[in-house]
């Protein structure tokens, strides 16, 4: 038996290319109407207040995870400060609406803007680093922000937190599901409306030209800069945008729960969002939303397992990552 050493096949480097199954990509014009219909009929299907609460909680996690997805799927950075930005949004909305300084909608806008501003302030020093160092830098910022929430008692209420945050004024808006359930259906629709908007933003930005620049920056800042782009500015803009979306999620959370306390905005909050994005496909917005739903709903069925739920999650994470690797889905 003779073996010949053949030169690399044309079109391949070193001739070793694995066949990959492409990541399924449904164009937005088909996927979005489908998602809108699903959201619209969901309250009719699970027509009880408990399931609706779980579904709303899934939506809140989805918004935060989508904020993280923009950062991980674009410039490829992981931030542990997003729990803090989530908290900034929640506290700003809470402080403004509890004292009746502003009504809900302007307060939500201010909360989002505040998160963006804090994102710029954190991003300017932190973005001097990359990847692992960046994760650690943001970890420090996340810890700092969590301490501010717990320690700045005169403003945040300290460890007691802020209670009686008014909910979004939605009463009287006619919605189809309200025929079956009264309580919580408007909140469900509001939260999932925000999910859909943020989802579309994710898909358009990451698939479009801006995403092309971000994904190129992730691979070589030097090459991108040589074409006239300012990589640092793109990274900062993306980080601030992502922080603003996290603050929006926080504002939605605060009005839904009607209470904010320092325990909900730690680095573990950011960690949860990172896990959702990791399972969802690192930059895959639809996968992120699907994972947020699964990771909110599944624990509800596993109450009997108590702390052993963690084992189930570990196995789930392992299986998902194995399957993705077997399909050759790189991200």
């Amino acid at each position: 038996m003779t073996e010949t050493i053949s030169p690399p096949e044309p079109g391949t480097a070193r001739g070793r290319r694995r066949r990959r199954i492409p990541v399924p990509r449904l164009p937005l014009r088909f996927a979005l109407p489908l998602a809108i219909v699903l959201v619209a009929v969901a309250p009719l299907v699970f027509a009880d207040a408990y399931r609706l609460r779980v579904a709303t909680a899934a939506g809140l996690l989805a918004i935060l995870a989508l904020a993280m997805n923009l950062l991980i799927g674009g410039p490829g950075e992981i931030s542990f400060a997003h729990g803090g930005f989530y908290g900034v949004g929640a506290y700003v909305l809470g402080i403004l609406t509890v004292g009746n300084t502003l009504s809900f909608w302007p307060a939500l806008l201010v909360a989002t803007a505040a998160g963006t501003a804090v994102g710029v302030a954190v991003g300017i020093p932190a973005l001097r680093t990359r990847t692992l160092s960046f994760a650690i830098a943001t970890l420090g910022m996340g810890l700092f922000l969590a301490n501010v929430f717990g320690g700045w008692t005169s403003v945040t209420g300290g460890s007691v937190g802020l209670a009686n945050i008014p909910r979004a004024p939605l009463d009287g808006i006619p919605v189809p599901g309200s025929i079956f359930v009264q309580s919580g259906v408007r909140q469900f629709y509001l939260v999932w409306l925000v999910v859909l908007v943020v989802l579309v933003l994710n898909v358009v930005v990451l698939r479009g030209g801006f995403g092309n620049v971000l994904k190129s920056i992730k691979r070589s800042e030097v090459l991108v800069e040589s074409l006239g782009f300012r990589p640092g500015f793109y990274r900062l803009a993306t980080f601030a945008f992502s922080a603003g979306l996290a603050a929006l999620a926080g504002g939605m959370y605060a009005q839904y729960i009607s209470f904010v306390g320092p325990d909900n905005f730690t680095i573990f909050t950011a960690f949860n969002a990172i896990v959702v994005v990791a399972i969802g496909g690192l930059g895959n917005a639809w996968g992120t939303v699907a994972t947020a739903i699964v990771l909110t709903v599944v624990p509800e069925y596993l109450h009997a397992l108590d702390d052993y739920r963690v084992v189930v999650f570990a196995v789930l994470l392992f299986v998902v990552l194995r399957v993705r690797a077997a399909l050759g889905w790189r991200t």
Binding site: V204, V205, G208, G209, F210, G211, V213, L227, G228, F229, R230, F233, Y234, A237
Partner: peptide, 12 residues
């Protein structure tokens, strides 16, 4: 135009 804001607008 390599500016970030212009690129973002063109993305839509």
């Amino acid at each position: 135009g390599p500016g970030a804001f212009r690129t973002l607008l063109r993305t839509f």
